[in-house]
């Protein structure tokens, strides 16, 4: 048992670093683009929107991060599960290792973003806006973004697992599932959307008042965890005894 737990940590470690390695290009290019845009272009003109103005690096890298997580998630089963099983690792150890790696990757991504945003604040302070509202605590931003990146990875993982197991029909079933997951997360966490669900939680207001002791903040977290649990269960059930292609 002890040996097996060491093994999924080893898998997690290797997967995290491999995927982090792939991401250096993406982060480098986004950072370069961010700096050059900031130096050469007036954002207000570019966006043609006084309000949007400039919202900082975290906002800027959010979508590239999400797309990266989605794509890497899709690759996980065909690339990693297949390789690990062929190397004599159980599907179970791969699964556990991959969950840890995806979480670690999300957190490391956000640490990088927060550090760069911190430097940005030192160089040229901007009014910092994320979808959690103005003045949300950095810790909360870190936590919620990490959770969201993780969910994008899960969405990709679902699609990859569905396709690997059921090919075409897998896509038909699992893509809507993944989209629902992402849509639900957006509903829960997006401050821009005035959805009924959002109004119900009125997260935006709560956060700008910064009352974490109010229990309502736990509702989006709670629902997120339930969604994550369902996704993880589905992925595990899909690949638990899957035939690995030669």
């Amino acid at each position: 048992m002890e040996q097996s737990s060491r093994k999924d940590l080893k898998i997690a470690f290797n997967m995290t670093f491999m995927q982090l390695g792939w991401s250096t290009w993406m982060i480098g290019i986004v950072l370069l683009l961010f700096i050059s845009l900031q130096v050469f272009v007036d954002f207000k003109i570019l966006l043609n929107d006084e309000e949007a103005a400039f919202q900082g690096f975290i906002h800027f890298i959010e979508n590239p991060y999400k797309i990266f997580m989605l794509v890497v998630g899709i690759l996980s089963v065909p690339k990693f599960l297949s390789w690990f099983v062929k190397t004599g690792i159980t599907r179970k150890d791969y699964f556990k290792g991959n969950v840890i790696a995806a979480l670690a990757l999300s957190a490391i991504f956000m640490m990088i973003a927060v550090i760069i945003a911190g430097i940005e604040q030192l160089v040229s302070p901007v009014s910092f806006v994320t979808y959690l509202g103005e003045g949300a605590s950095w810790f909360l931003i870190f936590l919620v973004y990490t959770l969201n990146l993780f969910v994008y990875y899960l969405a990709g993982w679902l699609i990859g697992a569905g396709y690997y197991r059921y090919s075409g029909w897998g896509l038909v079933l699992y893509i809507p599932g993944a989209l629902t997951l992402i849509f639900m997360m957006d509903l829960l966490w997006s401050g821009e959307l005035e959805t009924p669900l959002h109004r119900l939680f009125s997260l935006h207001q709560l956060l700008s008042l910064s009352v974490p002791e109010n229990l309502s903040i736990f509702i989006p977290f709670g629902v997120s965890f339930v969604l994550i649990a369902i996704s993880l269960w589905t992925i595990r059930a899909t690949i638990k005894r899957v035939r690995v292609k030669l």
Partner: peptide, 28 residues
């Protein structure tokens, strides 16, 4: 090699079922 499970029947190595057995899989 535990790439798949048989549709019928069983495979045992050293008296233990092989499929998804971490101890056995790394011996193959």
């Amino acid at each position: 090699a535990s790439f798949a499970e048989p549709d019928e029947g069983s495979i045992q190595v050293n008296g233990k079922p092989l499929f998804e057995n971490a101890e056995l899989m790394q011996q193959v």
